[in-house]
Amino acid sequence: MFQVRIHGRGGQGVVTAAEMLSVAAFDEGRHAQAFPSFGSERTGAPVVAFCRIDDREIRLREPIMAPDALIIQDPTLLHQVDCFAGLKPDGYILINTTKTFEQLGLADFIARHRAERLCTVPATELALKHVGRPVPNVPLLGGFAAVSGILKLESVLKAIEERFAGKVAAGNIAAAREAYEIVRAEMEESAHA
């Protein structure tokens, strides 16, 4: 079983991202379970959502406490919430930021993890460029397909088409594609480093 935890803020499409991830996995014929961390959500407040992916039925209903991967939609959360809690030692991290891990003050943290599994992508900028709104959730899914390799980019794009229509779908697909390419390039760079 592969477990993903998504951190973001109310209004950034955290719950939608987890749902779309599960739809992408479902489209690949796999079992997936997406659910929010339920609270009194409001715009700007820290929000968490979860997604489990497996090749057999998922019966487990506990929250994800030891994730295989983290998607962090808002880097300002790093100073407010323990986003990395329980992350597996060889886990994946994808952060929406224009900065590097070092610039985010995470140099010590990344020294203990596998560099090629730690990526950043400017998802808010990509969303503004392609969709016209600062909603980073969908481009991050494109980046996540690249860094984790758990899902095909095509499945993510299909999930986008199922969720959105017209220009919004087209914009999000372009943003997810570009995020995928950026993360791929980043991974190659760290593999050669």
């Binding site: 599960s22 079992h31 997936a32 379970q33 997406a34 659910f35 929010p36 998922i58 209903r61």
Partner: peptide, 10 residues
């Protein structure tokens, strides 16, 4: 509530 009502699954 939430655990099932808000869970997206097959």
């Amino acid at each position: 509530g939430f655990i099932l009502t808000h869970a997206v699954e097959r």
